[in-house]
């Protein structure tokens, strides 16, 4: 993978968020060490995806703090914070009116102010890393789901993020396409990227991640190394969740 990853640690402290009377996050603490992968699992509606959006301030928390490399980022410009955190979505969310290479180079040109040619070269080499350089001129709609998701990963990586978020990145993929995307994520983890991965792929959690956090009802129920959580769940809620998904 890339040799130049300069990742940082990420910490969420006592994060609260309500939509009206609906308390989505009720005091979440999450710490991801530099260069490690934290998986977040839990039933639908447990607040996992919302947690990611709060951590990069797509949604502002009602209370709590977010630290990147030990420094609070709540007072920073949220747009600048998001440039340091790459995000990959369940539905890919590539820009369908732009070609694959334009999807990857757009932020480089417009946010980094790179000249068009240079941004294009950078985008092409990023696409090469995910094995899709030959699709550079295609439109996202002409790619398979797995290819689209790899482009989405390249688009996020192009900004040299310090942390990567994956929000159920393989949930919308056909089963035979899941492996390629998970492999790419595993490569990234091995290369030393700090990652927060919301996922239903228990194999990935167990084999790739350094810590697993189980959320339910807007709180962290259990957290720890994967072996501990999977082999020796401490709470009835995690036990029943694992028996449902495994």
């Amino acid at each position: 993978m890339t040799a130049t990853i300069e990742s940082g640690s990420l910490t969420g402290k006592d994060l609260h968020l309500s939509f009206g009377a609906n308390r989505v996050l009720r005091g979440i603490d999450l710490h991801v060490e530099r260069g490690t992968t934290a998986s977040v699992i839990g039933p639908s509606g447990s607040g996992k995806s919302t947690l990611l959006r709060v951590l990069n301030r797509l949604i502002e928390p009602d209370r709590g703090d977010i630290l990147l490399d030990g420094r609070s980022v709540l007072r920073d410009n949220p747009d600048e914070l998001r440039r340091r955190i790459g995000m990959v979505f369940q539905q890919f969310n590539l820009f369908p009116h732009k070609t694959v290479v334009e999807n990857v180079s757009l932020a480089l040109r417009k946010l980094r102010g790179m000249p068009a040619g240079e941004a294009r070269e950078a985008a092409l080499s990023q696409l090469d890393l995910v094995g899709l350089k030959h699709k550079a001129e295609a439109r996202p709609g002409d790619l398979s789901g797995g290819q689209q998701q790899r482009v989405a990963i390249a688009r996020a990586l192009a900004m040299d993020p310090e942390v990567m978020f994956f929000d159920e990145a393989t949930s919308a993929l056909d089963p035979e396409l899941v492996k390629g995307v998970l492999a790419l994520m595993a490569d990234l983890a091995t290369a030393g990227m700090t990652m927060v991965v919301v996922t239903h792929e228990m194999g990935f959690c167990r084999n790739v991640s350094d810590t697993v956090t189980f959320m339910d009802g807007g709180v962290v129920v259990e957290t720890g190394p994967p072996a501990a959580l999977f082999d020796d769940p401490q709470t009835p809620r995690l036990r029943s969740f694992l028996s449902d998904v495994l």
Binding site: L132, R139, G141, S144, G180, A183, A186, V208
Partner: peptide, 22 residues
């Protein structure tokens, strides 16, 4: 026509890392 999806096999999947085999 432009919006039509053309699903095709993921022909050039990145090499599968050990850990990701599920």
């Amino acid at each position: 026509v432009g919006a039509r999806q053309k699903p095709e096999p993921d022909d050039l999947a990145a090499p599968v890392a050990q850990g990701a085999r599920t």
